[in-house]
Amino acid sequence: MIRTFGFPELLFILDGAKWTVLMSLAAFLFGGLLGLLVALARTSKIRPARFLALCYIQLFQGTPLLIQLFIVYFGLPIIGIRVELWLALITGLSLHASGFLAEIWRGSIQAVPEGQTEAARALGLGYISRMRDVVLPQAFRISLPATVGFMVNLVKGTALAALLGLTELTRAGQLMSNITFEPLKVYATVGLVYFAICLPLTLVSSRLERRLNARG
């Protein structure tokens, strides 16, 4: 039986979109936290920490996201670690995000003028306060366009979860296309939903940028 593309089919796609949003949020959160630690290690005074952070960044930037996901989901069980699909996806996406965000933030931290750190040191502020109160707020502003650009890419990158069998937005679209034989309508809808997820990110980012720039 061939179904037409109607409201139930749309709901099915939106249900898939729920997973896309959840995966994206989890990857931002965990990838962001991990990425911040790696960025701090990459800019630290301790040589081995810098080197390890460099290796970490190279590893995750230099290999495809899909392969990273395959290794976590299909590879780890071979050495005896069974991972739930959901956990595997969040782990893979977070690791991937942390590598890219670390490198974006590393550059932003280094773009904050040296005089800022010196002034903070001269006031007697320790490392934690220097970073939290002086360097990171300025680095955040510098990194904003690149960070949001990466986040938008990450949202779209979650489509790879379809290849591991999760019915997220893209996979939901595939299934609906297969039963309705209306690929144009279905995939246009899927595209619009991705767009609707990414649009707020860029809007919030440009508003934030304007507000931060108003300070001169």
Partner: peptide
């Protein structure tokens, strides 16, 4: 450092 204040050529105020 807590006993010593410093003023720089480029001011180095925190712009944010």
């Amino acid at each position: 450092r807590r006993d010593v204040g410093m003023v720089f050529q480029q001011f180095n105020l925190f712009p944010h």
